[in-house]
Amino acid sequence: MKFFILATLFGLSLAICSHKDCTSCASDSSCFWDNGAGECKWVLFQVLSARENIILQPLSCPASLPAFQYTDDFGRNTVFPFAMASNVDGVENVATCLTGNTKNAQVLKQYTVPCDMLGSNCSATLFYHPDANAVVLAFRGSKGTAQFVIEALDLLFKSSQTAPLYNGNVFKYFSNSIQLLWAAGLGNDLSAQIQSHPNSQLWVFGHSLGGALSTLAANAAVRSGIIAKDRVIVSTMGEPRTGDYTFASEVTENLPQAYRIVHYKDIVPKMALKVALSQTNAYHNNFEVWYNNDMSGPNFAVNDRADDGSGSNVDIIGDLDSHLNYFNTDMNSYGPGPCTQS
């Protein structure tokens, strides 16, 4: 009798979920793609598959990697110093924090606005990097416990909204912050710089809150026609889930050369919390760069699946220490003089 029931269920699964590829399978709400088996299966059979093999949304199907290939050298010696320099107040101080591959970059302007009820600031710095012919935009991360807690509460309660700069829903703290910065002249000045350097690329970097704002700004630049998507490179560190599945899908389309760097068990990329794999109100875009180590060396893995149970998501529980240490550096005590954060 048990054999008959199992055979019947298996037959139903084959009949209902006969899709031969991940995208069409994951687009069918009755099915899921078992990436380990390379098969489309009935959604009720999820309990028989390992969590990291279950794909329920097309965006998390394995995707071809971008033309621009992420390297540890780029992350360590370009992304990291630009992002850290953006944490400093004042254009003259920002310049002192540019090291390694970034030392010849020109600091053009800094934009700082109060972005929550306590008056915490959000900030972005615009650069031109002549060595790479790149306009660079770097966003400051969270500063202080109060700002971090307000963001965390926003993510905890999953308060989100729509806005003209993006499609889908984005968590309110990030949405309000990017709109304030964009209106403070960032959008117009970015457009002017791209026009002044017509063959340049646009590089956008940030850590934590700065990562979310980086993704929003780069997406807005492509969406508004400031620059073509194939000229944009985004690399974030410790970026939280910024918006919902619709937003993540737009970002993946508009920013095909975007990388989310994650250190070990960093807790922030796991926020807003995504308990069920079927959940779509909080979703990452492609592609994740996971350093499942202390980041002292160049070893990492690029995950070609957006936001399911694979990659760094195999660890459901995260830690804050991983968030505060990237590229084997304590980000709260980075650099000389004004570069040191408190």
Rank of each mutant, 00 (worst) to 15 (best):
F327G: 04
F45C: 03
V251D: 03
D321S: 13
L98C: 05
D116G: 04
F4E: 15
A67G: 09
A83N: 12
S322Y: 04
S196K: 12
N281W: 13
M237N: 07
P269H: 05
K143L: 14
R51S: 06
C25Y: 07
V149A: 15
N254P: 08
P240T: 02
E92M: 07
S191T: 09
S224Q: 15
N121F: 14
T252S: 05
N332T: 06
W203M: 03
P298S: 15
V289M: 09
L153E: 14
S278T: 15
V136L: 00
A192M: 01
V234R: 10
T236A: 04
Q195I: 01
C122N: 04
N313C: 01
S296D: 04
S333W: 12
A146Q: 13
S196M: 04
F10Q: 14
G36H: 11
I178M: 13
N35W: 07
N303R: 00
D28I: 12
G211Y: 02
C122K: 02
D244W: 07
L277S: 04
I5K: 06
A276T: 12
K41P: 07
Q57F: 14
A83M: 14
S27L: 06
F247R: 00
F139R: 11
D308C: 04
G309F: 07
L14Y: 08
Q341W: 05
D72I: 00
M295A: 10
L98E: 12
W42K: 02
Y259F: 08
T99D: 12
Q195D: 11
C40I: 10
P256G: 02
V275W: 13
F287L: 01
N53D: 07
F68G: 00
V289K: 13
Y111R: 09
N332V: 01
T96A: 15
F148N: 11
G168E: 07
G90S: 08
V47N: 09
S29L: 08
K270S: 09
F171P: 03
C40Q: 02
T236Y: 06
A183W: 01
D34V: 09
A221H: 06
